[in-house]
């Protein structure tokens, strides 16, 4: 693939033309830095461990990453507008216990619990956007409050205990296979493609970027800012609901504390993927790369028998490295 083609693939067609050689070099490293780190990790792990470069393990990595991946994609929409959604981890717990509670009888299907879990996510998104748009509350504070409330509701709903013994059709949502490919991987790829399509090909997607770039200008020229905000928090809630359902299905049980802290991991992945914390720039492609990088690193550390204490440190270091890289690139 030529440089231009690769860059088009990675960054999208709307990248601005740059002037000057240093700028070009910067962009080159900025664009490929993350890919390079990913490739290095991949190669090193393939060489140093016997278990990494196997089909089973790689599918396993994608499967494990996809839960955080759903959250991170939803967060990409929100963060592109300059917002944040801290409630996604709690929604994983709440949507999980609600959906699982309708999947306990042996005859229960998978669709009703799935629909209920997604509805929970949408409702939380509606509350978040309502507080932000109508109440004028800062996204950080609004979704922090909703995080606590949603977690509390999950504990109340489940009486603080796990919901287990879920029906087969329900478990398919998280653990099923379509031929040789896990359902979870299919879902994740589908979500990535749809999200990419919405952001890059629709007017709504364009408006998401505009709101993050300059909210006043967007409003002035007739972009319905409130509708954009409503949209991104609904998308984020919906995907968090989906993550909750598939997590419960995958492990055959819902825990009210499931997804605790996932919001931070997902936000890290989005930032590692190059989405600006202040909105206006970033992409789903970048986020997927961020999620996969974190997934590969964690998986590799496991295979290398590194204890979880060190894993946390490494995760933090990856974040720092990515942030510095982005900072340097845009500097």
């Amino acid at each position: 693939m030529t440089h231009a083609a690769l860059r088009t693939f990675l960054e999208g067609r709307d990248i601005g033309q740059e002037v000057g050689r240093s700028r070009r070099v910067k962009n080159l490293i900025g664009d490929y830095g993350l890919v390079a780190i990913f490739v290095v990790c991949f190669v090193v792990l393939s060489a140093t461990t016997s278990g990494f470069l196997t089909v089973d393990n790689l599918i396993n990595v994608i499967e494990q990453s996809s839960i955080i991946g759903f959250l991170a994609i939803g967060l990409t929409f929100v963060m592109l507008t300059g917002g944040i959604d801290l409630s996604v981890g709690a929604v994983v717990g709440l949507a999980g216990v609600v959906s699982a509670s309708f999947a306990q009888s042996a005859g229960a299907g998978g669709l009703l619990p799935l629909a209920l879990g997604l509805t929970v996510g949408l409702l939380v998104g509606l509350v978040n956007s309502g507080l932000i748009i109508r109440g004028g509350v800062l996204p950080f504070l609004a979704t922090l409050a909703v995080l606590t409330i949603a977690r509390g509701l999950a504990l109340i709903y489940s009486d603080g205990g796990p919901t287990t013994g879920l029906s087969n059709p329900f478990q398919v949502l998280g653990a099923g296979m379509i031929g040789p490919v896990p359902v979870l991987v299919v879902m994740f790829v589908a979500v990535v493609l749809v999200a990419e399509f919405v952001l890059r090909r629709t007017a709504f997607g364009r408006h998401v970027y505009a709101v993050g770039g300059n909210v006043e200008s967007a409003r002035t020229v007739g972009v319905s800012v409130n509708r954009v905000l409503l949209g991104v928090y609904l998308i984020c809630g919906l995907l968090a609901g989906l993550a909750g359902v598939v997590l419960a299905a995958r492990v055959n049980g819902a825990d009210p504390m499931a997804g605790n802290g996932y919001e931070l991991e997902a936000i890290s992945a989005v930032v590692i993927g190059g989405t600006s914390f202040f909105g206006g720039s970033g992409s789903v492609r970048g986020t997927v790369l961020g999620v996969m990088l974190l997934g590969v690193v964690m998986n590799g550390l496991n295979l290398l028998d590194v204890t979880s204490y060190y894993q946390q440190v490494v995760q933090g270091l990856v974040l720092v490295l990515a942030v510095l890289l982005n900072r340097w690139k845009s500097g």
Binding site: D14, G16, R201, T202, A203, R206, H207, Y209, A210, G212, G213, N214, E216, S217, A218, T220, V221, G222, V223, G280, S281
Partner: peptide, 29 residues
């Protein structure tokens, strides 16, 4: 009233994007 993070064409049409139907009129891109 421009969005600095978008390119010129996106700004010219911001809020009044020209769209076309695709996939048999199901989607407007």
């Amino acid at each position: 009233a421009l969005a600095e993070n978008l390119d010129i064409r996106s700004n010219i049409f911001l809020g009044r994007e020209r769209r076309r139907k695709t996939m048999g009129g199901l989607l407007r891109v």
